[in-house]
Design a protein around this nucleic acid. Structure first.
Lengths: 359, 359
DNA sequence: GTGAAAGCGCTAACAA
DNA sequence: TTGTTAGCGCTTTCAC
C-alpha cells in the first residue's frame, strides 16, 4: 500500500488544501500560484486575479513551515531579556512584537533571569527555529553563550554595549539628555543637595546613568558628596534602603534621583514611612517611565526611556545588519514628585520612623 | 549544472550541518540519528551514545521547520488577548510562555485591541504557522472570526464562556470565592454601606463579578442600593468617575469595591483628590492583583486572580482537548486600603474637591 | 510569462 | 534493531 503517496490518497475525504489544490482549481501550475502568493511582479495580471479569486474562494492559507524550509527564511526574530519581573520589559517586548508583525515577522521571546542554563536553552530554541535575528535586551552581556548565534552569522543587536562582530549592532541610549534635563529641573527649583540611588554596578546602563548624573550636576555647579550616592540594585527594596541612608546623613539631600523607577517606588515608600511627604519635604525623580509611574500617588516625575523606541530600533537593526541603528533619546517627564525644596532639613523632621509597616 | 543537487554542492565550504552530516560522521543512517534525537526507545544504547557524541561534537541542532513540516506538528501555541494596555495580561502571557516552553512549545502572541481587522490578521498568522492550539484570553468573545480555527479542528480554550464545540474548552474562574472573602472582610470591619464600580457590561467577567458582589452582600445581610453601583469600564478614568459619583450621594458608602485594579487605582486618585484618605475615611478593594497594586501607596487590598494559574490551565487544556480544565480560584489579598469605617460620613468632610490636579 | 521538476531537512513507512 | 526511501508543502531554477 503506497502509504503517503499523494496520488493514492484519493479517498473520499476532502483534499488537503495545499498549493497544488489551488493550482488545479485555478487551472495553473503550482509555480504560478507561488508567484502570485509572493507577489512576483512578472505574473500576468489576469492570471493573478484568477488565482487570487481561487485562493479566496477556497480559503487557502500557505504553510509557513514549508515556505521557511525551502526558502531558508523563517520570518522569526528572537528577543532575549533578563529579568522578566522588571516592568520595563513588557513595553519593550510588546513594541518589538508589534514592529515585527508590521514587517511580517513573528517573535520568539526568551527570558534568562540571569541564569546560564536558561540562557543556553533560550539560544538553543532560537537556533532550532532558525531565527533570522536576535535582540539581546538584557542591559548586561552574557557573551559566551551567544557565541553560537554569532558564529552562525545571525544578526544580533544589543543595548549600549556589545561584542564587536560584524553581524552585531548596538543601540545607544542617550542617558545624558534626560538626566541633564532632570538635574536642571531640580536646580531650577532651587535644589542644591541632590542624592542619587544607583543600579547594580555590573549593568552598563546603571553606570552610564550615574555618570550622566555626575556630569550633569557638575555642569550646573552642584557638588555631590560621596555619601549622597547610594549603591542600590534597581529594586524597590534597594530604593527604600537608599532613602534610609540618605536621610540619615548630616545634611540630607532635598531631592533624590533614582537609577530606575522601581528604586524610586521603593524610595517613595521609605519617604512616606519616615513621615515625610513628596514633594513638600523631598523631591524624587525616577528613570524609565514604566506604566506604574502614572498611577502611583503622587504620580512620579521620571525620565522616559521609550521601550517602543528601543524595540523599533532593534527590529530595524536586525533587518538591516549593515546600517547603524539610530540612538534612543531620553527625556524628563514632569509629574508631581518634584517641587521647591523645603526650608527645613528633611532628616531633622521628627517622625515615627516605623509607623505604617502594617496599617 | 545540477543547481541545488546535494551531491554537487561539494565545494570546499564546510558542509551544511544537517542530519545527513551527522549520520555520516557517526557512521549510521539518518533514520537512526532521527530516532536518537527523538528518543525513540528501540535504539541500541551503544549506537545512541555514539550518535549523541557526534551531535555534541558537531553542535548539531535539528531544524524545527523541517521537523514540523514532515511531522505535521508545529509545536506552536497561540494566545490571543484583547487589550494590551491592561496590566493583567503581561503576567498571563508570561505564564503562558513559561508553561508552553516547559512542555516543548513556542508561543505566538496576538493582541486584537478589540479590532476586527487585527483579530483577522491574528487568526491568519496562527493558521499560517499551523499552531496546534489557541488560547483566546479576551474576556469577551469575538466568535465569528475564530470560526476558521474551529473548523480546522484546532483546539481552543476560552475564559468563562465559549462556543460549544468539541474542540473548545472553557476555563471557569471562581469569582465568588474572592469576592465573598472581600465582602466578609469589609463586613467584619464594620462596613454596612459598600459601593461597587463595575466593568464594561459586555464583558462576562465584569458581570460575573458584579453578581458575585451582589450575592455576597446579600449573604451577609448588607443591602446595596441601586445608586451604590456605578457602571465603570475597567479604566482608571472610570474608577475616578465612580468615586465622584459615589461620594456625591446622600449616604456615601464607607467602602468601595472595584471590578478591577485599574478602576481601583483611578478610585484612589479621586479619593485623594477629594481630600479623603484611605483607609481612614474610606476603604477600597480592587480585583486582579496586578503588579502595580503592591507598589501604590497605600498598597492596595485586592482580590487575586492568578494570571499564571489561568495560563497554566490554558496550556494544559490545549494539550489535552478531551479533559475539562480545572477551575481557577480567586482570593482576597489584604494590604493596606481597608480598615474600620470612619465615624463621620465620608462625603460630608469639607474638602477642596479640586486641589491636586496639578501639584 | 508560465510550467516542470528538483529539492529544503526531516520523519515514518517499509524492508531487511 | 537499523537502513532505504518517499514525501511533508513550498520556492526556485531552468527550459520553454
Amino acid at each position: 500500500m503506497a502509504t503517503r503517496k499523494r496520488s493514492t490518497t484519493t479517498a473520499k475525504g476532502k483534499e488537503r488544501l495545499d498549493i497544488r489544490t489551488v493550482a488545479t482549481a485555478a487551472g495553473v501550475s503550482v509555480a504560478t500560484v507561488s508567484r502570485v502568493m509572493n507577489k512576483v511582479p512578472t505574473v500576468d495580471p489576469q492570471l493573478s486575479k484568477r488565482v487570487w479569486a481561487t485562493v479566496k474562494k477556497l480559503g487557502y492559507i500557505p504553510n509557513t513551515q514549508a515556505r521557511a524550509l525551502v526558502s531558508g527564511r523563517s520570518k522569526l526574530l528572537g528577543v532575549i531579556i533578563s529579568d522578566i519581573t522588571n516592568p520595563f520589559f513588557p513595553e519593550l517586548i510588546q513594541g518589538f512584537e508589534d514592529k515585527a508583525i508590521d514587517v511580517g515577522y513573528e517573535t520568539l521571546i526568551g527570558s534568562t533571569n540571569y541564569d546560564l542554563q536558561r540562557m543556553e536553552h533560550c539560544v538553543q530554541r532560537m537556533l532550532e527555529r532558525q531565527v533570522e535575528g536576535v535582540a539581546v535586551m538584557t542591559f548586561g552581556i552574557e557573551e559566551p553563550l551567544l557565541e553560537r548565534l554569532s558564529s552562525e552569522g545571525i544578526p544580533m543587536v544589543f543595548i549600549d554595549v556589545a561584542p564587536r562582530k560584524k553581524n552585531i549592532s548596538v543601540i545607544h541610549v542617550n542617558y545624558d539628555q534626560g538626566i541633564r534635563e532632570a538635574v536642571q529641573h531640580l536646580a531650577a527649583l532651587g535644589h542644591r543637595r541632590i542624592g542619587f540611588i544607583t543600579g547594580p554596578p555590573r549593568l552598563h546602563s546603571a553606570n552610564a546613568r550615574l555618570n550622566a548624573f555626575l556630569s550633569a550636576t557638575e555642569r550646573v555647579g552642584i557638588r555631590v558628596p560621596e555619601m549622597c550616592i547610594f549603591h542600590g540594585d534597581h529594586t524597590a527594596e534597594g530604593g527604600s534602603r537608599g532613602v534610609e541612608h540618605l536621610l540619615s546623613i548630616k545634611q540630607p539631600p532635598t531631592a533624590i534621583m533614582c537609577s530606575n523607577d522601581m528604586s524610586a517606588l521603593g524610595a517613595m515608600h521609605a519617604i512616606s514611612r519616615a513621615g515625610l511627604s513628596i514633594p513638600a519635604d523631598i523631591s524624587l525623580i525616577g528613570f524609565d517611565d514604566i506604566q506604574l509611574t502614572e498611577y502611583v500617588l503622587p504620580p512620579l516625575t521620571t525620565i522616559r526611556m521609550s521601550g517602543r523606541d528601543i524595540a523599533a530600533s532593534a527590529v530595524y537593526a536586525l533587518l538591516n545588519p549593515g546600517i547603524a541603528p539610530k540612538q534612543v533619546e531620553t527625556n524628563l517627564v514632569v509629574r508631581q514628585t518634584t517641587g521647591v525644596p523645603s526650608k527645613q532639613t528633611p532628616g531633622s523632621k521628627p517622625a515615627a520612623r516605623k509607623s505604617a509597616d502594617k496599617a
